[in-house]
Amino acid sequence: MRFWGKFFGFIIGFMFGRIFGALLGLWLGHLYDKRAASGVGFREVLGQAKNRQAIFFNTTFAVMGHVAKASGQVTETDIRIATLLMDQMRLTGEARKEAQQAFREGKSADFDLRSSLQAFRVITMGRKELVQMFIEIQIQTALSDGELDPAEHAILMTIAQELGYGRAQLDELLKRWQAEFRFHQTSSGNKTSITDAYSLLGITNEASDQEVKRAYRKLMNEHHPDKLVAKGLPPEMMELANRKAQDIQAAYDRVKSERGMR
């Protein structure tokens, strides 16, 4: 059994990035060990990881542009959401230009949504957390004006189906994202806030304390930033993962406080 790639990847990653770097190094080392017998070197493994991140990055913004155009025209709100996302990711210089170019390509009439999603599905095979985050970003774009146009819903359904999600799963993600949006708007502790805290966690107020904890742990496991980056999330999107994890934590804390849980 080969292990030197994992060993050195962990050590070097920890030196440069502490726990997150160690996890990423361990993952790259694992890929190296797995491919070493076939003569694939570390540079090729690293190149594959970077290529996966680049495809995730570009597909995200291209499909955002396509979703924004679904209702007939890209509105100021759509552009503001895309710009806000770039700001949250702290994109500057060439990276921001690439995101803007991908967004424009997605808006074009000849953009091939299905082909783009099929390529995206290949590079995220076995990484359902990345797929879910991608879909949630597209949901955020579609609901940027507070309403879901039928054409936008149709595109979201196409995205979900191409990436292996059914209608029920998409509806659940839509419900949770809407709850997350409202949770931000009503974070002063009123009744709506606690209702949306439950919805954000994907449960109801009839859930037992054990079910609340289980739902929280499941969501945190799915959205843990270090885990997502190790699976291929572009480093530029780390801040988005952090914000999602913070929202989950805030909802859980709200529910715990309401119930008097420890």
Results as ranks from 00 to 15, higher is better:
Gly41Met: 05
Ser188Thr: 15
Ala160Met: 03
Leu143Asn: 13
Thr75Ala: 00
Val255Ala: 07
Val45Gly: 06
Ala151Tyr: 07
Gly126Thr: 04
Asp149Asn: 08
Leu117Asp: 05
Glu76Tyr: 05
Ile159Leu: 13
Phe120Tyr: 12
Asp33Pro: 04
Phe181Leu: 12
Lys213Phe: 07
Gly260Leu: 07
Met133Tyr: 11
Gln140Val: 08
Arg104Glu: 01
Gln210Tyr: 03
Lys191Met: 10
Gln88Gly: 09
Ala36Gly: 11
Gly47Glu: 13
Tyr216Pro: 03
Ala109Arg: 14
Gly202Leu: 00
Leu233Asp: 05
Met64Tyr: 06
Gly39Asn: 02
Asp149Gln: 11
Ala54Met: 10
Glu98Val: 05
Thr158Leu: 01
Lys128Met: 06
Glu172Gln: 09
Phe103Glu: 03
Gly21Arg: 01
Tyr198Leu: 05
Ser144Trp: 06
Ser208Thr: 10
Arg262Asn: 09
Ile155Cys: 06
Met1Cys: 08
Gly164Trp: 06
Ala230Thr: 10
Val40Glu: 12
Ala230Glu: 08
Leu174Asn: 12
Leu174Cys: 11
Met64Glu: 14
Gln101Cys: 04
Ser116Trp: 00
Glu44Phe: 08
Arg52Lys: 13
Ile19Ser: 11
Met15Val: 11
Arg243Leu: 12
Leu28Asn: 05
Arg104Ile: 13
Lys191Pro: 02
Gly106Tyr: 02
Leu91Ile: 04
Val122Ser: 07
Pro234Phe: 04
Lys191Ile: 07
Ala54Pro: 11
Glu98Lys: 11
Ala197Met: 05
Gln88Ser: 10
Lys34Arg: 12
Val67Arg: 00
Thr204Gln: 06
Ala197Thr: 13
Ile139Lys: 02
Lys256Gly: 12
Asn205Ile: 00
Leu240Ile: 13
Gln53Ala: 12
Ile248Leu: 08
Asp110Glu: 11
Ala49Ile: 15
Gln53Ser: 02
Ser257Ala: 15
Ala250Tyr: 07
Ile11Pro: 02
Thr158Ile: 09
His153Arg: 11
Leu28Ile: 15
Asn205Trp: 00
Val212Tyr: 01
Glu129Leu: 07
Leu170Ala: 12
Asp145Tyr: 02
Phe3Pro: 01
Asn190Pro: 02
Val229Arg: 00
Glu105Asn: 05
Asn190Tyr: 09
Ile135Val: 14
Gln100Lys: 02
Asn190Phe: 07
Phe3Val: 15
Glu136Tyr: 03
Asn51Phe: 07
Lys175His: 15
Gly93His: 04
Lys6Trp: 03
Gln249Asp: 15
Glu258Tyr: 13
Arg43Tyr: 09
Gln249Asn: 12
Thr83Val: 04
Ser108Pro: 06
Thr60Met: 08
Ala70Leu: 02
Arg52Leu: 05
Asp112Ala: 04
Ala168Cys: 05
Arg127Thr: 10
Thr195Trp: 05
Glu236Thr: 09
Gly166Tyr: 04
Phe57Glu: 05
Glu222Gly: 04
Gly41Ile: 01
Gly146Ile: 12
Ala230Pro: 02
Ser108Phe: 01
Gly21Ile: 12
Ile81Gln: 08
Ile203Asp: 00
Val45Thr: 14
Asp253Pro: 02
Gln249Thr: 14
Lys50Ala: 07
Gln246Ile: 09
